[in-house]
Design a protein around this nucleic acid. Structure first.
Lengths: 253, 253
DNA sequence: CAGTATCCGATGCGATACTG
DNA sequence: CAGTATCGCATCGGATACTG
């Protein structure tokens, strides 16, 4: 890795953060990921070798601490205060990307697995009624979504006792809510590019189930928090973005 | 350039900005650079081929516009509104680098030419008395600073009629202010790591000349504006950093 | 589960020279 | 001044397989 040979702190920061995948690893740590394979879930296209190397580099740069959990004996990576202070930068960067980067949602880049994994990680069990709730999601794309032998057009979200599970095979429970849509629509819903009300009215999304759950769809079916970022030419409220930063300074070592 | 294959706007933004040199080019544009060779001065280690390519990429991404100046006929690169909105992000990134990146000022990375070029670009002629002012800077490093046949231990700043010139050879004018120091000290002064008062008291910097100019040294001898960023553990005032962003939205196309 | 070892191919990027 | 053309190497990182 060559340096920029500059004193400028912007250049110095960039030398660390411009490394491929590094910013995404930090994002995941700041969103709460702690373990190796936990991080991997959010950077599935990254090889484990490289993730391992990046983690060591980040440790050397003072951005994370590697430690064995005293109780579980498991190895965990903890962001340091230096990393925590990157949270507003990363958040602002994401808001900028949401506003200005236009190459999103090219058809051939839609990816049901990635989308569902993201949604799974964001589901808030406390927004569901007590007991078990099963949500079935059916993608109507034609040709049907699949990857090799796997069909990717049927998914089940099982919310039970504060736990959330994502399944590709029918878990066998009675289904409470049926969601029928296509991948593009659902991705746009997630990204904040398509309001649920509009999508439902046009028939692009169909949700069937108990009225309270259907009515509250947007409350429990997660969306990217960047969906709230106004698109140009509306002005961006910097303070609002920053104060939404996920990392709470104080939990860090 | 491979993508990250993610919807996350952070990843999308990173795909553009993580490109080597790209962030520094944007920094220079947001600081006011407009012409090819003007930008080059701030990224001297970058090959012109690569700069050319990056500029085209930035144009394709909608971050800059390339246009021929109607009056001068010269080609200029103008940041767009999208680029202008990156200013707070870049500024925050720089503040973070100033606070947390510790590999600065390694002896073998000190570079008189880079430092003097930066200072030259930051000198504000309006802070000098009317007429011509000549500042001589003498580096006392041992062995003497030099690069190949060039000696880099004597510099002249000539401020005259709103223009500022930097010379490596005696311009022949009468010298108003003599600054004697060593490269490490002067770099630390520039970076905000060494207050002028302390440096002068310890003898690390000696300034000789008319009392008004000597007393006002810190007012006319530029320093990195990141020098004001508090070091940890003092808390960082995000709003102060952001509101200091160089780019004024509105000048952009 | 949490990584390492090894290999190898693409390509990013630097160096140099050249041009309207 | 404002770039382009060409070359070639280093290295980054992806793929695959393996391990305590």
């Amino acid at each position: 890795m060559k340096t920029y040979g500059q004193y400028c702190p912007i250049a110095q920061a960039a030398e660390i953060l411009n490394q491929r995948w590094t910013l995404l690893i930090l994002r995941d740590l700041l969103y709460g990921a702690r373990r190796f394979n936990e991080i991997r879930k959010f950077v599935p296209l990254m090889s484990p070798t490289l993730l391992s190397r990046r983690l060591r580099e980040l440790e050397a740069s003072g951005l994370i601490n590697r430690a064995k959990n005293k109780t579980t004996g498991v190895i965990e990576y903890h962001p340091t205060l230096a990393a925590a202070e990157l949270a507003p930068v990363i958040e602002l960067l994401g808001a900028w990307g949401q506003r200005w980067v236009r190459n999103r949602l090219k058809e051939d880049e839609l990816d049901a697995s990635m989308l569902m994994a993201t949604i799974h990680s964001l589901v808030d069990a406390s927004r569901f009624p007590p007991g078990r709730t099963v949500v079935a999601i059916l993608f109507t794309d034609d040709p049907p979504l699949q990857k090799e032998a796997w069909r990717l057009d049927q998914w089940w979200l099982v919310v039970d006792g504060g736990e959330v599970e994502l399944c590709l095979r029918d878990p066998g429970y009675e289904i409470d809510v049926f969601v029928t849509t296509d991948l593009r629509t659902f991705t746009r819903y997630y990204m904040g590019d398509f309001a649920f009300r509009d999508a439902a009215r046009s028939g692009a999304i169909e949700v069937i189930g108990p009225k309270p759950l259907v009515d509250a769809f947007e409350r429990w079916m997660p969306r990217s928090h960047f969906g709230q970022v106004p698109r140009p030419p509306e002005p961006l409220d910097l303070q609002a973005v920053i104060s939404r930063s996920p990392a709470k300074i104080g939990e860090y070592s």
